[in-house]
Design a protein around this nucleic acid. Sequence first.
DNA 1: AAGATATGCAACCGCCGTAAT
DNA 2: TATTACGGCGGTTGCATATCT
Length: 302
Amino acid sequence: MGRAPCCDKATVKKGPWSPEEDAMLKNYIEEHGTGGNWIALPHKIGLKRCGKSCRLRWLNYLRPNIKHGDFTPEEDSIICSLYISIGSRWSIIAAQLPGRTDNDVKNYWNTKLKKRLLGRRKDRDTHHRQSATPAMSEMSTENMNDGERALSASAMERIQLCMQLQELQNPLGAHHNPLVWPGTLSSNSFNSNSSNVTVAEQGQSSSMNEPLMDAQMEGVAMDGLGSPSSAENSNMISMEAELEELLYGEGNRGKAGVVDGGVQQGDVDWWSYDQGKSPVGSWDFTPEANAVFQDYTSVYDI
DNA sequence: AAGATATGCAACCGCCGTAAT
DNA sequence: TATTACGGCGGTTGCATATCT
């Protein structure tokens, strides 16, 4: 047989936490730690809560050094950059933002950043609809085939973004060329073929503090010293700056610097990443893709 | 001022890989 | 080796508050 039963779901309390419950949980963990067993924790404390709920409350709210609200422009840029690169891997993204939780980052993206980015693109789509290529039109949700419907919303968003990039790269002749994804653009060392890193391989097995390092070791094209080449690094930095422009416009460009907690723009690493389970496949930023991305942001001129 | 709508956020749900038995 | 719980994660929901009409 397996382990002992978890909590009694019939008696556990749900809903918002009271200040008293918060205090009980916080005091206990600060004094005794979690003991490596969240399920047993509420019983020890005397809380009528599920262990999972305790864990969530601690990680997302009670844990020391948690920051709430007021995301900085630098954090915005990091979130957007990583989302475009790896998708909704909120725990990985949050790991790059000291004091932020995955739940916070997720909520912030869903309620603000996504609207800010996609909303602007939507405005532009409306403006340029007359000149849209057949390929773009066919990708509208009304005309999606079964295979396309099977894609996650996250993947679709990134697909739409990539399509925008390609349209801008070749605005007059996009329909003459097959859609080229970033991962297939290049035959050089940035190609995803050299970096079949699955979620399980690079994410689950590693500390959440070092996912990027793991990913770099597994997949990103490195020079002989184990770091991105200067040319590639230059592309990355340039792209981050362009992203900032996309988010905040020309007036705020150049504000990037040190984020609260010590993360700098340059600390965001870019890596090839094969989503493994995703039907879309790999999402990486080749030098070519970076260039396209820059075209994208410059054309928008927000 | 009141109702409708939009927004933000905390918490829950369900899935998956891992570990314990 | 099979079974089952645990831990972690992303997606979604529901409520409180803010804004709009």
